[in-house]
């Protein structure tokens, strides 16, 4: 299944995306997104999806980037008490998981609190 993620690797590696601000449609050319933003809300997940067992509990947050775009991402390398609403966060590239079928290592964006 890794191919469905390989296909959009630029989005994962370079934090690219697109969306029409008026109607929400997504058939535009991808643009680089700003790599910093602030935490809008966060959670700590105790029951992982398959492939994420070793990372429990998993910190996740909705980050509002400087241009207003939102991204759902893991928060890593951050002391628990610093993960709070309004905290500034910066995108980093990290290993996400190993694909179960092919063994390929998938990389993508995660965020650290500054």
């Amino acid at each position: 299944m890794a191919i469905q993620f390989w296909r959009i690797r630029d989005r994962y590696y370079r934090l690219m995306g697109n969306r029409c601000d008026d109607c929400g449609a997504r058939n535009l050319a991808d643009k680089d997104m700003p790599r910093t933003g602030k935490i809008l809300t966060h959670t700590q997940l105790h029951e992982p999806l398959p492939g994420f067992e070793s990372e429990v509990p998993l910190n996740l947050a909705v980050i509002e980037l400087q241009n207003g775009a939102r991204v759902l991402a893991q928060i890593v390398d951050t002391p628990q008490e610093k993960i709070e609403t309004g905290a500034k966060a910066r995108a980093v590239i990290r290993r996400v998981r190993v694909d179960g079928d092919s063994g390929q290592i998938l990389y993508g964006y995660k965020f650290v609190v500054e």
Partner: peptide, 23 residues
């Protein structure tokens, strides 16, 4: 591509929503 990929389950999305709601 954007929810499952980062490890977010359905419960995780609702946890994010619940904190936002309560705060």
């Amino acid at each position: 591509e954007y929810t499952q990929f980062v490890g977010a389950s359905f419960a995780a999305l609702n946890g994010l929503l619940a904190r936002h709601y309560m705060e």
